[in-house]
Design a protein around this nucleic acid. Structure first.
Lengths: 250, 250
DNA sequence: TCGACTTTGTGCGTGCGTTCACAAGCGGTA
DNA sequence: TACCGCTTGTGAACGCACGCACAAAGTCGA
């Protein structure tokens, strides 16, 4: 982590002070949507589309057109009134704001089913996220290359992360190991963590954690299944009476 | 597997009308947190803890205590003032609200790296989500069991989903196939979809979609890396010190 | 050059979700 | 039984984000 930004020359495009100001003010929700816009725009660019209106783009991204324009306004005014947005221009500005002009070296910890899948994505979806280090505790895995990267023992995490300038750590371990792995990543200077383990991680303030929690996602869906089923039931059973005779539906 | 929910008598515990009313009013964000509370509580129950205060529970779940109490109040008043909550009671009420008293049969479409990983979880984290069907287009995969379930051809999706009463579809296909798979799931009567493909799915209003988007997650982290780097840069124009006094430039 | 049309950028009202703060309620204790 | 301390449950204030609606600003055709 120490020399992530090289001295003198850096591969990353630094943000203009005006943009810094902006970046600080972008709502988290808008950042997530910007990433979606970026993907849609990239797809359009690949198909030779050069210009797009907020209406078209918003529809492709599945959001409200006004919201999209507001989101884009957070990063500056790069549209042309009466015409729309230049796809290339928008792509490059979103990439810049999202920090995608620099490479983010990724380490995956826990090479089980999920870890394998993640490692094999190799250079994550959307590029710019090369997986450069893999870790596990299983002696049978150490040294075996997965997706082209040999697996290191987890004890080497600090040294390897520093050496390869890992900026994002992905935790794909069993739940009991997650917090300990997290602590090690943090002490190796990793400030951004993507956590697949169903555990609430405790981290210092200066570390950013995003969690991907399958169980929670499934349970949210389950909630909706149940809600739907109950709505259907309450329509079909037809008495509209609550537990103690209280009328729920007027 | 065909008779997961018997005809006539259902294994699912129906919600009382009073709870139905409540379930409808629970904010989406709160539902997600309830799932987290549930996991923490289950862990506590396994360790023999029988009672817990909102303060303890909120800390373990990584949220504000007041928010936790409000979240719990959405599902009813099951705490004891001056004491706290009974773990078992809370677990069973959250399970009921989230619809976890019934089994939710899951189909995974796209048996690549990720699909394999998902299928092998076998009965999803937290139980209650048995994977009962797998689909792919690759002829080499058809019939091969993964995690105990043989892979079906995707053309059989409607028949198999209906037969096995699939209520949740998981899309783990390459992006170009996702929308088509989604359409097929919907026409097979699946109303809840968990989408891992980096595509914005278009679905009818009565279908619930949750998406897990690795690229977006990585890019959000990237944004934070960039923001941090810029903050450090704007601070360090002289002292070379980072946020917590750590030397960024040796 | 002018006018009509199109689309952006944004000020503002609205609604939802979070947080605060306190009254209500319960168990323990004298 | 009456009091005390603790914790819940929730009313109310706050803040953020969404969406509307419109002015500003640009293009295109005449």
């Amino acid at each position: 982590m120490a020399s992530q930004r090289g001295e003198g020359e850096t591969t990353a495009t630094p943000l203009e002070p005006a943009d810094r100001e902006r970046a600080r003010a972008i709502p988290e929700a808008a950042v997530a949507r910007l990433a979606v816009y970026l993907r849609v725009l990239s797809g359009m660019a690949d198909q030779g589309v050069t210009a797009v209106s907020s209406e078209e783009l918003s529809q492709a991204a599945g959001v409200n057109a006004a919201k999209l324009r507001k989101d884009l306004s957070y990063i500056g005014s790069y549209g042309t009134r009466g015409v729309g947005y230049d796809v290339e221009v928008l792509v490059s500005h979103i990439e810049r704001i999202l920090g995608l002009t620099r490479n983010h070296s990724v380490a995956v910890v826990g090479i089980g089913n999920l870890g394998h899948a993640l490692a094999n994505y190799g250079g994550f979806p959307g590029r710019g996220f090369p997986v450069t280090a893999l870790f596990d505790v299983d002696p049978d895995l150490i040294g075996i290359p997965v997706g082209g990267i040999p697996v290191n023992h987890i004890d080497e995490i600090t040294a390897v992360c520093l050496e390869r300038e890992v900026s994002i750590g992905v935790i794909a371990t069993p739940p009991p190991a997650a917090q300990s792995v997290c602590d090690r990543l943090v002490s190796a200077g990793v400030q951004c963590i993507l956590n697949f383990a169903p555990v609430v991680l405790q981290v210092p303030d200066n570390v950013e954690v995003r969690k991907v929690d399958l169980a929670v996602e499934m349970q949210i869906l389950s909630f909706h299944v149940a809600r739907r089923a109950d709505e259907a039931a309450s329509v079909s059973d037809g008495n509209g009476l609550g537990v103690d005779g209280m009328v729920i539906r007027p």
